[in-house]
Simulated assay, not measured.
Amino acid sequence: MRVLVVSDSHGDSISLRRAILAQPKAEVVIHLGDGEVEAQRLKASFPEKMFLQVRGNCDWGSELPVTGLWEFEGVKVFYTHGHAYGVKSGLYNAVCAAREQKAQVLLFGHTHRALTDYEEGLHIMNPGSLSGWQASYGTLDITSQGIVTNLIKLP
């Protein structure tokens, strides 16, 4: 299964649509916050895709949760925007939260800096920001052979 992972679209519906269209095999879209309005708007345009969302620090008045936990084929994915875990100062708190949930994958945004890493059984990915001149997103592939994270610059 392919998952499209996006964050920090900050009102840029066009870039979000481009990322979704660039990954037609993605069955799930996870938006990691700071883009609730455009994600909700585009959700109706792609009814065949499952959308999972959390709120970011710029999603004022949002009733979305701060964190999410999703499981597919025994793989637990913990996802958050990251501001509640201080990810701009380090990943320790977010990694601990993911490990408490017994997750194999941690997804976060907020920093606008793309990152993919693997640390003692935990795949870590920040897809970067969908807005701005260095826009990027990520893919998460969950298969019987394993887990693969990938970062992609939006053309």
Score class of each variant (00 low, 15 high):
Leu52Phe: 07
Leu64Ala: 00
Arg41Trp: 11
Phe51Leu: 04
Val148Ile: 15
Leu52Asp: 11
Gly35Ser: 04
Lys49Arg: 04
Leu115Thr: 05
Gly146Val: 00
Met1Val: 10
Pro24Ser: 09
Ile147Lys: 10
Val105Glu: 01
Lys25Trp: 12
Tyr85Ala: 04
Ala135Ile: 02
Asn150Trp: 11
Leu21Trp: 05
Leu140Thr: 07
Phe46Ile: 14
Ile14Asn: 14
Gly138Lys: 01
Leu122Thr: 04
Leu140Trp: 00
Val54Asp: 00
Ala103His: 01
Leu151Phe: 04
His10Lys: 14
Gln104Thr: 12
Phe51Thr: 04
Tyr85Ser: 01
Ala22Glu: 07
Ile14Met: 15
Ile20Asp: 00
Lys102Val: 14
Ala19Lys: 02
Pro24Cys: 03
Gly128Glu: 06
Met1Cys: 07
Glu100Ser: 15
His110Asn: 03
Lys49His: 07
Gly138Val: 01
Ser89Trp: 11
His112Gln: 12
Asp34Pro: 05
Phe51Ser: 08
Glu38Pro: 11
Phe72Arg: 07
Phe72Thr: 08
Thr67Val: 10
His83Leu: 08
Gln101Arg: 14
Ser136Ala: 15
Trp133Asn: 15
His83Lys: 06
Gly86His: 05
Leu130Ala: 07
Leu4Val: 06
Gly146Ile: 09
Gly90Asn: 04
Ala103Tyr: 00
Ala26Tyr: 02
Gly82Ile: 06
Gly74Ala: 13
His123Ala: 02
Pro24Glu: 09
Ala103Gly: 04
Trp60Asn: 08
Thr139Tyr: 00
Ser13His: 13
Thr116Val: 13
Met1Ser: 14
Ser13Trp: 15
Phe78Gln: 03
Gly90Met: 05
Leu52Tyr: 09
Leu107Glu: 11
Pro155Ser: 07
His10Phe: 03
His31Val: 00
Met1Lys: 11
Thr139Asp: 01
Phe46Trp: 12
Leu122Asp: 03
Gln101His: 10
Asn93Leu: 08
Val148Thr: 15
Arg18Cys: 08
Ala103Lys: 01
Thr67Met: 06
His123Met: 05
Arg99Asp: 07
Pro127Glu: 01
Arg17Asp: 08
Ala135Ser: 05
Leu42Tyr: 07
Asn57Ile: 11
Val54His: 00
Phe72Gly: 08
Val54Ser: 04
Asp59Asn: 12
Pro24Trp: 07
Val54Ile: 07
His31Met: 08
Lys76Ser: 08
Gln101Lys: 13
Pro24Phe: 02
